[in-house]
Amino acid sequence: MSNPQSTTKAEPTQQSQPQKPPVLEEDDEFEDFPVEDWPQEETEHGAAAANGTNNHLWEESWDDDDAAEDFSKQLKEELKKVEASH
């Protein structure tokens, strides 16, 4: 009586699927440091500041790619389909 909808096609085709990601170490526990304390220069921040590498660690989540025209074309094609289906 309960008929499962859309389960038959549940297996997605794996054409362009990315690879399985790496598995991080099984034990995800924070490790004891080999030394108890360290000077500012040996901290991540201090060391990076000394090398001048503290910038550009985070970047914007959007991208103005050069393929804007491609997208425009694609969009127009799809638009025809959308309009055709309504």
């Binding site: 004891d32 440091f33 080999p34 030394v35 108890e36 304390d37």
Partner: peptide, 11 residues
């Protein structure tokens, strides 16, 4: 207390 002496690891 431990600052005053060794900063080495206890392990």
């Amino acid at each position: 207390p431990w600052r005053a002496t060794a900063s080495a690891t206890a392990t």
